[in-house]
Computed example of a mutant assay.
Amino acid sequence: MPVLAGAEPFSHTGSTEVGVLLCHGFTGTPASMRPWGEHLATEGFTLSCPRLPGHGTTWQECNRTRWPDWYDRVRSEFDSLARRCDSVFVFGLSMGGTLALRLAEELGPAVAGLVLVNPSVLTLRRDAKLLAVLAPFLASVKGVAGDIAKPGVTELAYDRTPVRAAASLSRLWKVVRQDLHKVNQPLLLAHSIVDHVVEPVNSRVVAESVRSRELTDLPLRDSYHVATLDNDAPLLFERSVAFVRAVRGVGAR
């Protein structure tokens, strides 16, 4: 299946001290994480941003994938970074944050720290409760991509939401919520004040459920959901580098 131009995975080899795994969101692509990755590369970090199965091609292909497929991909990339770097941090946007949390729950201290941007662990939308029922009969609904406040910026993502894949995402949310108490790694939690995709309650649930002693709250006041491409991106990028260096206690270069 051909990959959309710009949706390709990317990586950078820098310091062996610090590795960063970047995880993009549901129906999105590595393109949403590329500016962040470029910033991290200039700071000397080794990094990897995989393209999740079913993403960056067609929403129909995404409907043939499930959350274990997405998780297996990020777990594989994490293991690869861990073989090359002393410490590995996981950065995630939206569902990428969900996958990052699952890695932290399962891998414990192997995950040095987390930077989450508008992570999703639930939804209050009533129609979402019907996903499992509708999945056998309804292939897709209107997409949620492109929630960006900055004029002229677009997100490379599907314009339709694949219903079967979305139903699987809701199952991932349940799995992650049940084990949030296992997360005790240092955590930088960035959340947009206005987000038309992931309700603010998501970040509150994460903050109140994890057991991270080092939890830094970072409100994003001038961005919508895809904050990695929005007005607050420079702030997010700078704070994420400072976070890694503070946790490590050393420079990344």
Results as ranks from 00 to 15, higher is better:
P186W: 00
A227V: 04
T29L: 04
V197A: 07
P136L: 08
R160Y: 02
L93G: 06
P200I: 00
T13L: 14
R204A: 12
N202C: 02
T13D: 15
T13F: 05
A207R: 13
T161H: 02
P119K: 08
E214D: 15
A139Y: 04
Q60P: 07
V153T: 14
L107A: 08
R83M: 11
Q185S: 14
L52R: 06
H12E: 14
F78C: 13
L93V: 09
R83W: 00
A7F: 03
S120M: 10
H39T: 13
Q178M: 04
A110M: 09
F91L: 12
T29G: 10
R75Y: 06
T42S: 15
W67K: 08
N63D: 15
H12A: 15
A157N: 10
A31R: 13
V250A: 13
R245H: 11
H39A: 14
S203C: 07
Q178R: 15
L218K: 12
H181E: 06
L172D: 05
E106G: 06
T27H: 08
V176D: 02
W173P: 10
W59M: 08
L93H: 12
P50E: 04
R75N: 12
F243W: 07
R245K: 15
G14K: 03
P53N: 04
A7C: 09
G146A: 06
L81G: 01
R248L: 09
N184R: 12
A252Y: 00
A149L: 08
A167F: 01
A207P: 11
V241I: 09
R126G: 14
W173D: 04
P30T: 06
L40M: 14
T27N: 05
L189Q: 06
W173C: 09
W173G: 09
S80N: 14
T13I: 10
L215G: 12
A242T: 11
R102K: 15
V247K: 02
D230Q: 02
V226C: 10
W59F: 15
L99Y: 05
G54W: 00
D72M: 05
W70L: 08
T98S: 14
T216A: 11
E61V: 12
L124C: 13
P35N: 10
G251E: 12
G44W: 00
V74N: 04
E105A: 11
S223E: 01
E77I: 00
T154W: 02
G251I: 00
E105L: 04
V194Y: 04
V117I: 15
A82F: 05
K142G: 14
L22S: 11
R73T: 14
R248M: 07
T58A: 12
E208M: 11
K182P: 07
S15C: 03
W67L: 07
R34I: 01
T123N: 11
L169W: 00
E106F: 02
S170P: 01
M1E: 15
A242D: 12
S120C: 13
S203F: 00
A157I: 03
G28A: 14
G56L: 05
P234G: 06
V3A: 09
P68Q: 10
A41L: 07
R239A: 12
H181S: 15
V226N: 04
C85G: 09
H181W: 08
F237W: 06
P68C: 07
L138C: 11
A41Q: 07
Q60I: 08
